[in-house]
Write a protein that binds this DNA or RNA. Structure first.
Length: 477
DNA sequence: ACTTGCGGGGATT
DNA sequence: AATCCCCGCAAGT
């Protein structure tokens, strides 16, 4: 089976026999076919904070990335990690969220918008067809991962529990006031330690031990999240990580299942064993969590991000147009539509923290990057108004070059993506190589950072991963 | 209080 | 016409 389809194709493959395991952190121009029974796919889930975007096409659900909320001062948490909150999906909630302060240094929070797709946010497309749920992503996130949804939910529920606990609510009020809250854990317990530490900061270790999954039996505890502090107003969205003690031991192994147990939501995603729908040759798995691990280890560790968020981009929100213009001129090293991004390249960039935003677009790199231009999304599909009209009519076999192109791409070896011209999203010419070249620069810049790590645990926590630990880990796919 | 989807509509290109 | 994005509504959690 090859990936010969495009989300916009009138007719999608119907003969899918094997489905992909759900991918929480997709990144890059990837495509997956999930079973229509996959809960996560049904919910159009993503680790990234994706909001619904109206594309006026009922057949295809489009969602765009909101980026990540960070401390405007880019302070380091006690353990060196950075604050990376999940932007609220709801506009109102997000605005509120941004008014809160960093729990670590009390400075303002800042939303780093995603501009990974030609200056626009990365987009995810979902389409149900037959027994399958087709997923296609466009763009490469140019920002750190936010908390995963499950993480956020777990934290919230934990907070609720805390709040409801008279005991805590009282205590907390006394202690929490300003600073020192992280250290004043009223009731530190093993769970706290294990949960908090590992999930957010074990990424590195994780990469080294991608398959270790049973290190934290305690994670299975339904109550893994006992937050010492409860969060009220500004604390509400605080990442649990803040209080996590710097427990190095945790780094060693990441509790892959911590959240899974805590949040069953992701459990259902693994019914389809490692079968890869896509051609193994396609590196699409770049996003694959497992992969991310390895690559992370190398880079993320020592490299840290740029010291400050003084991101070159101006406002934190929506200045897309401006960027777009810039991008169109090739100034910004945009990642084009190469279908697959090599894991390494991809993750490097992530790990180094504030990826491209800082480094990429920086004046220094543009030259290195070969231009990319692209169009974003084509929804050449049936507009909503006439949903029933056609859709994927049986006879409509409009094979617009797209699909063909895709297939070609798909078949190309993972390594060949570089310098490939990918017709897919409208001729985007992307040079992965050039892209990679920029990495070093990024890393250097990131030196200021101290151990910035992904707060989001990488994918280890996904069940599928557990069931198919080596799926991508060995780089086979 | 949020998340999700839907769909109208405006702004750009 | 294509695409994006913003907004509000409704239904679910």
């Amino acid at each position: 089976m090859k990936l010969t389809w495009d989300i916009n194709d009138p007719k999608l493959p119907q003969d899918t026999k094997q489905y992909d395991a759900f991918q929480e952190w997709t990144d890059g121009y990837v495509r997956y076919i999930y079973s229509s029974e996959d809960k996560n796919a049904q919910r159009h889930l993503s680790g990234w904070a994706m909001r619904n975007t109206n594309n006026h096409n009922c057949q295809i659900l489009k969602k765009s990335c909101l980026g990540v909320v960070v401390c405007s001062r880019n302070c380091s948490l006690p353990d060196g990690a950075k604050l990376q909150l999940r932007p609220a999906i709801c506009d109102k909630a997000r605005q509120k969220q941004q008014k809160k302060l960093c729990l670590n240094c009390n400075s303002a929070l800042e939303l780093i918008p995603c501009r990974g797709h030609s200056g626009y946010p990365v987009t995810n497309f979902w389409r149900v067809d037959g027994k399958a749920i087709f997923f296609q992503a466009k763009g490469v996130h140019d920002h750190p991962r936010p908390e995963s949804k499950s993480e956020t939910e777990a934290r919230r529920s934990a907070v609720k529990r805390r709040m409801s606990s008279p005991h805590f609510s009282q205590k907390r009020r006394l202690v929490e006031p300003e600073s020192g809250r992280y250290h004043d854990m009223a009731y530190p317990n093993i769970h706290q330690l294990t949960m908090e530490g590992p999930e957010r900061f074990s990424i590195i270790a994780e990469s080294n031990f991608p398959i270790q999954t049973q290190h934290y039996p305690s994670f299975q505890n339904p109550e893994p999240y006992k937050f010492p502090y409860d969060t009220t107003a500004s604390m509400a969205d605080a990442p649990s990580s803040l209080q996590k003690p710097a427990n190095h031991r945790l780094y060693m192994t990441r509790p892959p299942c911590g959240y899974d147990f805590a949040v069953p939501g992701y459990l259902g995603s693994g019914p389809y064993p490692t079968t890869l729908y896509k051609d193994p040759s396609s590196p699409q798995t770049e996003t694959d969590p497992n992969k991310s691990g390895p690559s992370l280890s190398g880079v993320s560790h020592g490299t840290s991000p740029l010291g400050s968020h003084e991101r070159s981009y101006t406002e934190t929100t929506g200045k897309h147009h401006g960027w777009k213009q810039i991008l169109s001129k090739g100034a910004y090293g945009e990642r084009g539509d190469y279908t697959q991004l090599p894991t390494n390249a991809n993750h490097h960039y992530y790990n180094s923290d504030y990826p491209c935003r800082y480094t990429g677009p920086a004046p220094a790199t543009p030259a290195a990057l070969q231009t990319i231009i692209t169009t974003t999304t084509k929804v050449s599909y049936q507009p909503c108004p006439k949903p029933s009209v056609v859709k994927y009519g049986e006879n409509i076999y409009d094979v617009k070059g797209l699909s063909n192109c895709n297939s070609v791409l798909e078949e190309s070896s993972p390594n060949s993506y570089s310098d490939l011209k990918i017709p897919e999203d409208s001729g985007v010419i992307k040079s992965a190589l050039s892209y990679q070249d920029t990495l070093p620069a990024k890393i250097e810049r990131s030196e200021n950072f101290e151990g910035y790590r992904y707060s989001s645990y990488s994918s280890n926590s996904y069940p599928e991963r557990m069931s198919h630990p080596f799926r991508y880990d060995n780089g086979e796919y």
